[in-house]
Design a protein around this nucleic acid. Structure first.
Length: 577
RNA sequence: GCCUGUGUAGUUCAGCGGUAGAACGUUACCUUGGUAAGGUAAAGGUCCUGAGUUCAAUUCUCAGCACAGGCUCCA
């Protein structure tokens, strides 16, 4: 990076036209240009090698602070000035550095930034004292030619095996999902992978898969159409909805050969594109698009926790596009689905409460400015809730930026509140995306959209279930459903054969043919919260009976093999909790 | 992002200004048992990383990284 600092009596500038195609449009305020008095103008050229944004920013701030303190000014004008270098950075990198630098400078100075990527007219009067004109070259150490990246394989390998799974006990000594996840071998957090990116083990993955299979099958029965859309898209896609403007800071932005892309933080626009791919008739509505969607949100570091708040997560997401007169019925249907899902997963009404999340008319920044639409959609939601005689609390300022929400809230073992499910009525995005259909009178009409999740984020749901049940998952969700243990060496063959039979029936199993005493092995299996343990000794082999121990340890019952298989399969099928 | 705490064996943790310990787990051998811990032995460590103080740092100081809790936020 090269900078030229000028201490001026005044500077005036005004953008005239774009110098770069890919550059963002200016706000009305920015179009008018800017001016400052008694300021330090920092003409700045960002170069290709400035890709270590953090370090470059740090050095830049140091340099500017140094000069500013010498010339005794608190006003900084950050002025992108390409002409200082012949080795310029990509516009994306330059923008990133400039934004970052601006943010940091604002902590200590009054900062004015001239727009990047525009031809600008400007005039200024430089004071002329010895320190009024200075140039600096900002280099991060080890950069440039010497920047052969040194890879310390040993260090990286050490980091790779470094697992952090320690957490305090919650209220009443309950274990958190982190502790349970560690003890039951469900997931790990590896330092080398990165923050908020847990790795599910085969056992953890089993739980996730079962939940997602269940909800997919149920949605298909209820008329949802499942889609499969990309996990990234050009930033333009998110600009239409306003997500880019609202949430840019918590999106993962990528430079794809000079174009700006982002990993998707939500599914809406993708499914809207599918809707818009051809003209729609009222006869097609409602269209219910669903997707088990992998989403990415660059949450702030302090917000990340266990499986409840992570940077990549999976949402059983859906968007119901319907005519305004259908919205009430669809909303009711969504609630019915959620109730069904809750029931199947063993989430009771005592675990959660309903929050009717409304906008805050005073917060113009956060919410789309359309008071009439807000009032009418909130009224509609309230009407539905009251009609269903639901108990809920009202919360101002908790709505999405595009519409009111019904959130199902829960508390984790630490007593912290979080959202498990959410249903949102959206009046705004259909308009922004210009979604239409032909109504009965062959007139263009505007649909409404319900955004909803049927299990919430799968990872968070798993965390909730683990904490709620302290690891004792219902049989259908248990990673291992039946474990068979041999009492002596003589029983190993029988155990193996029995296990094969169980596996063929679609039961998830493990065997333990260890030669240590049975009590220790029972203990080990109990700690893993396996629903059924079968011990096979000579007696069982002879009598062709299975000695089955349930998770409570209180009942040890003899079954014949067929009976037992039937029992377990039925429990799985009925999702008995 | 802010505040607080933590980082030592695969895991959970103890410990200490003079380069380390337990339990569980792992492996081997012994043990052939009846529903929550059978015995013995061995292997396993850059005490998170970097800088500073010091004759000497895993230990003290600072910075960074990661994890956890609280705040804030959550499309």
């Amino acid at each position: 990076m090269k900078i030229l600092t000028l201490h001026v009596d005044y500077i005036n500038f005004k953008p005239l036209k774009k110098a770069l195609k890919s550059v963002e449009e200016l706000s009305e305020k920015e179009k008018k240009g800017g001016s400052a008095k008694d300021a330090l103008v920092v003409l700045t050229a960002i170069e290709k090698i400035d890709d270590n944004v953090k370090e470059v920013t740090k050095k830049f701030i140091e340099a500017v602070k140094d000069v500013a303190s010498q010339v005794k000014t608190n006003n900084i004008v950050l002025y992108p000035y390409a002409h200082l270098s012949s080795n310029l950075a990509s516009p994306a990198l330059a923008t990133e550095v400039l934004n970052n630098v601006e943010k940091e400078l604002k902590k200590d100075f009054s900062v004015l930034k001239a727009p990047f990527g525009y031809y600008k007219e400007f005039e200024m009067k430089v004071k002329g004292h010895p320190l009024s004109e200075l140039s600096r070259e900002i280099r991060v150490e080890g950069e440039g030619k010497e920047k052969e990246e040194k890879i310390d394989t040993d260090e990286l390998l050490r980091k790779m095996t470094k697992v952090h799974m320690s957490a305090p006990k919650g209220e009443k000594g309950l274990k958190s999902n982190v502790e349970i996840g560690r003890d039951l071998d469900l997931y790990i957090v590896s330092e080398i992978v990165g923050k908020g990116l847990p790795l599910l083990t085969p056992k953890g993955t089993t739980i996730k898969r079962e939940i997602e299979r269940f909800v997919t099958d149920e949605e298909l029965k209820r008329g949802y159409l499942h889609t499969s859309t990309p996990v990234m898209a050009s930033s333009d896609l998110y600009k239409i909805s306003g997500h880019w403007q609202h949430y840019r800071d918590s999106m993962f932005v990528l430079d794809v050969r000079g174009d700006k892309f982002a990993l998707r933080p939500m599914t809406c626009p993708f499914q809207f594109i599918l809707y818009k791919s051809k003209p729609r008739s009222y006869k097609e509505l409602p269209i219910r698009y669903a997707e088990i969607a992998t989403l990415f949100r660059n949450e702030k570091t302090g917000e990340l926790r266990g499986l409840t708040r992570i940077r990549q997560f999976t949402l059983a997401d859906a968007h119901i596009i319907c005519a305004p007169e259908q919205i009430e019925e669809e909303f009711v249907q969504v609630l019915d689905l959620i109730k069904y899902v809750m029931n199947s997963l063993g989430v009771s009404d005592n675990d959660i409460w309903y929050r009717f999340s409304k906008w805050n008319p005073k917060d113009k920044e956060k919410y789309i400015d359309n008071p009439a639409a807000w009032e009418s959609s909130q009224k509609l939601m309230k009407k539905i809730l009251d009609k269903l005689k639901m108990k809920y609390i009202e919360a101002d300022g908790e709505a999405a930026f595009y519409g009111p929400k019904l959130d199902l809230q829960y508390k984790d073992v630490y007593g912290k509140e979080d959202t498990l499910f959410t249903v949102q009525i959206d009046f705004a995005l259909p308009e922004r995306y210009d979604m239409t259909y032909k109504d009965k009178n062959n007139k263009q009409a505007r649909p409404m959209v319900i955004h909803r999740s049927s299990t919430g984020a799968t990872e968070r749901m798993i965390a909730f279930l683990l904490e709620r049940n302290q690891g004792n998952l219902p049989v259908w969700l248990s990673p291992i459903q039946v474990k068979t243990l041999s009492l002596t060496e003589r029983n190993i063959d029988f155990v193996k054969k029995l296990n094969e039979q169980l596996v063929k029936e679609g039961i998830r199993t493990e065997i333990d043919i260890d030669e240590s005493p049975i009590s220790g092995r029972i203990r080990e299996a109990s700690l893993m919260k396996i629903p059924y343990l079968i011990v096979i000794g000579d007696k069982e082999e002879k009598e062709k009976k299975l000695a089955v121990r349930d998770r409570t340890g209180k009942n040890i019952v003899d079954y014949n093999t067929e009976e037992f298989i039937k029992k377990v399969k039925e429990e799985i099928k009925n999702r008995k909790s």
